[in-house]
Simulated assay, not measured.
Amino acid sequence: MWVSTSFKKPFLLSLAIWFMISSLTYFFHPLQPFQSIAHRGASLYAPENTIASFQKAIDLGFDYIELDVRVSKDGHLVVIHDADVRRTTNGEGYIGDLTIQEIKMLDAGSWFSPEFSNEKVPLLEEILLQFGGKIGLLIEMKSPENQPEMTELLSSILKSYIEIGLKPSSLKVQSFNTNEMEKFHTITPNISTGLLLNEPLDLFHLDSYRSFASFLSIHHQLLTQPFIRYAKKYGFEIFSWTIKDAYVLQAMQRLGVHGIISDEDFRSTDTALYTFIPPFIYR
């Protein structure tokens, strides 16, 4: 199809002007403060979901550690991401098929580096004892629909630690499963609950979640300024995951998210190089 060059030039000029204006608008939008959340602990520096990675998060000054829990064969909450232990330990098998005694025999650090060869898969209660009150805890229930005892077990454990002094405000619980999060909120209303989301939502969904969720953890590529404005009107806090680049972190700050989940401490990174990269996907 033939297009007149007299049409092309004004169009290209308009496009260039739009690019400049939108970029300047973005660049001058201030970086907003946020809560820093260490993804499975400071997992760039130490093996994920271990005592070492959680301690590193504290050393680096993170506000929260994010961790995952699953139920062992003998009914304990184990801190591990995968259902199978193969990726992050020297063992084989599913958490649901292993007892705590069997799980504690595993090496959970050598896969990352020989210096972490003594790391073990921790129990949630070990984390609460060692880190509760020192840093915020964002706990993800992994596949609670396949472990029906998980929600009540987690609620019971957290309540017991609150009774001995752990502040409910230092705890947050999240999951991809809407029904289990609603159940958790019903039996543990004093702990903040949230939904993990990896697909776009409409306003109907936002309204339906207000009765039990106080925050939404959303994949960063799904976040836009209009969505965040609407979500804030509904009273939600917005957390973005998982940030692996400094320029994406700046984009999230400019969008005004409340929390940023990342593997590393970007405060040690020179982000000046990224100031002039316009992340159009977040417009």
Results as ranks from 00 to 15, higher is better:
90 N>F: 06
45 Y>R: 08
273 L>E: 03
3 V>M: 11
246 A>K: 04
75 G>F: 10
72 S>I: 05
12 L>N: 08
130 Q>M: 12
100 I>C: 06
91 G>Q: 12
129 L>G: 00
170 S>A: 11
246 A>V: 06
280 F>Y: 13
131 F>P: 01
157 I>A: 01
29 H>L: 12
10 P>G: 07
2 W>N: 12
264 E>A: 15
185 H>W: 11
8 K>R: 14
211 S>R: 04
198 N>K: 10
113 S>D: 15
27 F>N: 03
111 W>R: 07
92 E>G: 06
169 S>M: 03
197 L>E: 00
3 V>R: 06
225 Q>R: 12
71 V>Q: 08
115 E>T: 11
57 A>K: 03
276 F>T: 04
180 E>G: 00
63 D>L: 06
185 H>M: 01
154 L>Q: 11
71 V>H: 00
148 P>N: 13
45 Y>L: 07
89 T>I: 13
142 K>N: 10
237 E>Q: 15
97 D>L: 03
196 L>T: 09
32 Q>S: 11
276 F>Q: 01
241 W>F: 06
51 I>V: 10
6 S>I: 07
118 N>D: 15
101 Q>Y: 04
161 Y>V: 05
183 K>R: 14
238 I>C: 01
167 K>H: 13
122 P>W: 05
154 L>I: 09
161 Y>E: 13
182 E>W: 07
106 L>D: 07
269 T>M: 12
122 P>Q: 06
234 Y>G: 03
191 I>Y: 06
225 Q>D: 04
149 E>Y: 07
190 N>H: 08
80 I>G: 02
13 L>Y: 07
244 K>Q: 14
187 I>W: 06
190 N>R: 02
65 I>N: 04
245 D>K: 15
114 P>H: 11
37 I>K: 00
129 L>V: 12
278 P>W: 10
10 P>R: 02
